[in-house]
Design a protein around this nucleic acid. Sequence first.
RNA 1: GCCCCCGUAGUCCAAUGGCAGAGACAGAGGACUUAAAAUCCUUCCAGUGUCGGUUCGAGUCCGACCGGGGGCACCA
Length: 823
Amino acid sequence: MTTSSEHQAYDFAYVQEKWLPIWDRIEPFKSGRVDDARPKKYVLDMFPYPSGDLHMGHAEAYALGDVIARYWIQKGFNVMHPIGWDAFGLPAENAAIKRNADPRDWTYENIATQKASMRRFACSFDWDRVFNTCDPEYYKWNQWLFNQLHKRGLAYRKDSAVNWCPSCQTVLANEQVVAGLCERCDTAVTKKKLNQWYFKITDYADRLLDDMEQLEGKWPDKVLTMQRNWIGRSQGANVKFVIEGRSEPVTIYTTRPDTLFGATFMVVAADSALAAELAAGGPVEKEFSDYLEKIKAASDIDRLATDRPKSGVDLQRFAINPVNGEKLPIWASDYVLADYGTGAIMAVPAHDQRDLDFARAMKLPVRVVVETGEEDPAVTGVATSGDGTLINSGSLNGLNKEQAIAAITAQLEKDGLGSAARNYRLRDWLVSRQRYWGTPIPIVHCDKCGEVPVPDSELPLLLPEAKGLDLKPKGQSPLAAATEWVNTKCPQCGADAKRDTDTMDTFVDSSWYYLRYPSSTNHSEPFNRAEIDTWLPVDQYVGGVTHAILHLLYSRFFTKVLYDLKMLNFTEPFTRLLNQGMVVMDGSAMSKSRGNLVRLSDELEHHGVDAIRLSMVFAGPPEDDVDWADVSPSGSVKFLSRAWRLSGDITSQPGVDFSTGDISLRKATHKALHDAAFAVESFRFNVAVARVMELVNATRKAIDSGCGAADPAAREAVEAIAIMLSLVAPFTAEEMWERLGHKPAIALAGWPTVDPALLVDDEVEAVIQINGKIKDRMQVAPSISDSDFEAAALALPSIIAELKGATPKKVITRAPKLVNIVL
RNA sequence: GCCCCCGUAGUCCAAUGGCAGAGACAGAGGACUUAAAAUCCUUCCAGUGUCGGUUCGAGUCCGACCGGGGGCACCA
């Protein structure tokens, strides 16, 4: 075997091979031994989906997560940095269909591949805590949690028009429909009336919104905004309208009750039960059903077109406006949504653009009730939705919008005609899927007892073997064909019964996985309360912004449910969130079809693990996309070898007293340690790297033409460089550490204590300005007082000359950096 | 259409309201070398998208606009 001294050039391949087995033995990243007195830190990377080997995106994400985890370890924390696999889902199933194989085999093979790659990538994971969501030991608890939700009415079934992907042949959650397309395969999503399982996330809408206060400043604003928009709370009023010829009044929801006097017609959602009822038996029944057929045929894409002309059917029925007794014609149209509010609206064309568009198309009257000073909407075609003075509105006349809303809401409540109300854009979470590779829903359907949960003692309800099942999508779960599995006895009455054949959305799996890591081998409960209390909530979560709504919202929901079940003592799962950007090539996402795919394995082969990690971290702020075309992995190699070379130059012995070392290099070292720590804690990892580069440059210079290699300050500097580098380039750092005479592992060396005395400069260069323009500079002591500083500045010959005897109007002094003389 | 983020050298990016340049890539030159590579050193390059405002002082704060990116989108 070659020794490191024989390697006079930096050889990343040799260093990688050398240290991996040693680290395997030392296991520096095991967390949570019982006697561990260090304060805890839970650093979590979003777990990967095992869809092949790791790619460039993984490399970036795990490099960044590693900087954080390794930093806190160096700072003396007991860090848990676990990893697992989000292993259920469609890609495995599709791959299995294509190869006529078992999704299990494909999945576990990919997990093994990724795991090996992560080890080579030197991820600081605690390998003792690994689990996969497709392990029965894990999905058992999915089922257990499903039962908990079911028991409390938070998991329920209903008939509804659901999003249906004709290609995947499965239903999709609202969150999985992106611009009318299936998020997975980009097929246009259609609607289908089905009986499906839902989680009642809408019960938690207010808390999901209000608890975001806890996350302010700790999560990216962007994500908080996206979640707020997604939940979409709106404040308004419900108003009851009497319908001629119908015993029950119809309630409508509006955010503008102040415009009630301006309502000139009513619209009900064409696909609502109410519309069908109002049309039934009337003169327009045929016209209505034709219209309904037409809009059902339209895809979501058509529906999304903003300039689509308004359409509808006059139902020839009438509603009575409760405030003025006017008869309003009732129309059915698809521009009103059946599942928002009450599926019926009052139309105020003067002050709502959609209503105005409809009124103009159908030649319906427009009545202005809020004078905004703008032109008549009936003429311009532009609704005036802003504030103004109420007119044509009885007792509301003269009020502004806000006053009118308060007044009319109070009046309606008093008269029993309406009440203040809230609505949400958020819909309940559709969790059932008609596919094989997921957690079976633990419900038995019994003719006598109805929905009966599989008893906890019988969990996990194992997924039947894939062998012999046709996994091809056909609109019904493949599990339905597993007759032996489907046919069972009712757990309650013992009669013949059938199992539910749907599986759970894989987002159920990922909604609570972070709770499992502390207890990943616990067989008797999903997670252990004492361990949860020790480790949770997650201190730092790292992952892509693609999960800004779906995964993060669902996880927050689960946490709140579990809090209500008294299984947790916190209400937000992720204290801090960092969203890393994507790795792109020449400005666009990498893909095989684009021909701009960069293979991680090739990059690692050419430049080594450390250089790739360094390139990812140094490329820019972590939230920004990394354009691989802009980064220079060979530059990273160059820098690493420069740093590595320093470790071979040091001639002093380990343990030498640094305090006798060269003061200027010592100052540079302590400043770098201080600044790099600050940069890491504020997620400016690229800046932290720059600080290390600076110190490397300063140390090179000091050794070559300054204090020399034997000076204790040189050792102090190089040790600091190695420790700082260990966050980003663990192999190089470990090799440097050994060449410096230390034993592994540098990951546990500890961040050197910064001496505040060494952070103070002897002298600083101050700037003297006149009217904000720099006129002179001077060297001053950092501790100089404002008055001394000002006097010294005014005494400078150049300043005296410049002032020509004029008296300054004002002098702004910021010791020790700047004096600004205002004339 | 509404909301959010971002515009700094050829490129990627730094700069608690206080000297626009920390770091790097690319380029140029030099030292070393028979030469090259490697290494070391030196160096060119913008006044911060545009216009206005606040301020003693603005890349930084405010407003408008231009350009780029993202989210939501008939949610009454």
